[in-house]
Design a protein around this nucleic acid. Sequence first.
DNA 1: GCTACGATCTGTAGCGACTACAGGAGCAAG
DNA 2: CTTGCTCCTGTAGTCGCTACAGATCGTAGC
Lengths: 142, 142
Amino acid sequence: MKNSGVAGMQIGDLSAETGVNIETIRYYERIGLMAAPARNRGGRRVYEAAHVAQLRFIRNCRSFGFKVDDIRALLALPQNGGGAAEMEARELTSRHLTEVRRKITELKKLEAALKGMVSACTPGKQAECPIVASLARQATQP
Amino acid sequence: MKNSGVAGMQIGDLSAETGVNIETIRYYERIGLMAAPARNRGGRRVYEAAHVAQLRFIRNCRSFGFKVDDIRALLALPQNGGGAAEMEARELTSRHLTEVRRKITELKKLEAALKGMVSACTPGKQAECPIVASLARQATQP
DNA sequence: GCTACGATCTGTAGCGACTACAGGAGCAAG
DNA sequence: CTTGCTCCTGTAGTCGCTACAGATCGTAGC
């Protein structure tokens, strides 16, 4: 790692710096999520500090569960866009929050159902396995 | 629907009976999850009551979030396998339950983080959008 | 019989967000 | 000059479907 964190880094350095897989970095470039960097004479990608910041932003967004299209929208917001840009970021985030809450609710229902199945199952005690029995029922309970 | 729910139904009837998409039924057959049915002279699939039960089982498993490979394992258990089969079903289910709980924990952390972002954001009040700022940080908090 | 229409058939491609190669080229050290 | 690493492009695989295209089956009306 010759130039770590300052300028002129190659893809491996960027990967080490941000913790994002090399293949993933190239993928982000291909789908137009990340800005394409300059190339050296040999055709290798040369990244600057701005790329590090952008990729970190993307990685953080992904770790917060934002979809790639959301991130595209966030990156398209003007940096000092003022109120309008903030409103849009807030909108996007709170929509995402709603979705996360919906998933939590769903998973909690699932958890309760699975917990019930497991605790009903005391191997060797029943005639029929209660887990298989409940999975074989006509319809999932509403 | 000529033969509904009894015997000799075609794929459309099976789909209506179970609520599973026709294309999905064929997909399940292709990947070897569902038993392949007999065909009539014209090459059309002809399903019996056992297929309805099996597909309902599969659909219920999916609605409980089991993966296709898990379902394969559950279907491979002998119907009256006694204690050993029950143990395996229980094992599988409780492993799945653990995974569901892990996801809930993760999503709750996400929810808290997003909630914090949204409530910190009062458009027009700050110099910098706190959502974008928190997404631009060096690393996701541990 | 002929025609029209619906249901079904096969095979293939797309989704989202990567990941994993294969096969070739750049580049610095010994 | 060779070794050995990093990097390049392009393509295919993952999971669980879903969505076609284009052909065929089967039935009902005439």
